[in-house]
Design a protein around this nucleic acid. Structure first.
Lengths: 233, 233
DNA sequence: ATCAGTAATAGTCATCATGACCAGAACACA
DNA sequence: TGTGTTCTGGTCATGATGACTATTACTGAT
């Protein structure tokens, strides 16, 4: 902790308020042929934790709302426009940053595959597989763990999975989302039965051609874009 | 909005960071003989929203963690020590306060009945039934609605109900907690079957004497005090 | 002392969701 | 033409749940 200021000094200053976001996308994986969970990180160019990877974020401007700040930070640092955005948690531990006390209101977001594919990687922005991130700056490993936990829970009781997919999709693609998020394989027939009982997806008359096997039917999501966060929408 | 400063003026100032808490307790109700959900509110003695009722809260001191700040504010304003405390949400809308922009990190808490009974009401601290609060200051009606939504969800999939109860309790008392929180009656026999299948409550050899009918057996909660918030504990 | 009333407790039954599993249909490729 | 794989529809056993019935054990009135 080279850059840790002494405690009484830090406590003179008012807490700084920052907004950060954990962003997930499903990307094709070289090894497994199945898509896996990835997330973009930005390299820190200043102390503390210089050259370590961190969540995209920045200070809250006085004239923007919290989700607007999250969206603007995403646009500025990674050029990504999320298909889903939800507040994750406010982290305010005293020792999160060795320099000054920082309270971070953290959002988590999902992006669709076409948006994620267009995003170019730079020297300071890179995609990482969610299951081996290495050492991140600050308490960001803990934050990502929590975001993953929320994602895994939410995918099971809400219709959030479709935020990972395009307008039309096969049931197998939906299953691949669940399998990538939950980290386990699901029975195709049983999974299919559940989706067909759901009211928020509808079959189209189109089939996905060009595959190696029987062409699967395409479906469309007909539910609300925001899967609902209680009275807050 | 008599006290609303003009917008450009407000936006010069940095956002203020506050901590508030929604506290729930189960209290006997005069009408229904069944206990109902109550929460303590504090009267505002200053503008804005002077004389309206509001959630207990205050600014975050630089040297305390977020849950510590919530706990201290509860102690200072209502003298209540919660048996459960969890972060609810960070509210940061631009127009939450007409004077200055305020970002509120809101917690929600439960208190046990003996603690709630000891709390004395004063001129500026009073208990209200959760189902008719009237007009509160700021956006606190919306915050209470969200806290109620979270409470109702969490009571169904976690063991949070025991935070409302003492060390030993009857199964009917647990059922009364569920009924008060969910706002509907539950079948005693089926409810009993579910609780007996749970692993985190154990039967004692004691019975509650003095009632009008067959004395019910007393049970004890054997699970963890913190029902778990994912990787954060 | 006896009986009525009510909660506490135990149990039954039909229904539904789920996991495991089987089988035919429809395609590409050798 | 056959083989392999996925897509799709189906069966079966199991467990959870809601509705319901019945017995037990107490208080309070007659």
């Amino acid at each position: 902790m080279v850059y840790s200021a002494n405690v009484s000094e830090r406590r003179q200053q008012p807490p700084e308020l920052a907004i950060s976001t954990v962003i997930f996308a499903l990307r094709p994986d070289a090894d497994s042929a199945r898509p896996t969970l990835w997330l973009p990180l930005v390299r820190r160019t200043r102390q503390p934790y210089r050259d370590l990877w961190a969540l995209p974020g920045g200070p809250l401007s006085p004239e923007e709302s919290l989700p607007d700040a999250a969206r603007r930070n995403l646009q500025d640092t990674t050029s990504l426009q999320p298909s889903y955005l939800e507040q994750l948690y406010a982290f305010g531990g005293l020792d999160r940053s060795p320099v000054q006390r920082v309270v971070s209101i953290v959002y988590w977001a999902l992006v669709k595959p076409d948006v994620a594919a267009l995003a170019r990687e730079t020297e300071n922005v890179r995609w990482f597989r969610a299951d081996h991130l290495g050492q991140l700056a600050f308490d960001h490993n803990q934050i990502v763990d929590y975001a993953l936990w929320r994602l895994r829970n939410k995918v099971e009781y809400s219709s959030i999975a479709y935020a990972f997919l395009g307008e039309k999709f096969t049931l197998a693609q939906v299953r691949e989302v669940y399998e990538a998020v939950l980290g386990k394989e699901l029975d195709p027939a049983n999974f299919r039965r559940q989706l067909r009982a759901a009211t928020d997806i509808a079959a189209t008359e189109e089939y996905l051609q060009g595959g190696r096997h029987r062409p699967p039917r395409l479906y469309r999501y007909t539910g609300s874009t925001s899967p609902g966060n209680g009275p807050l929408g």
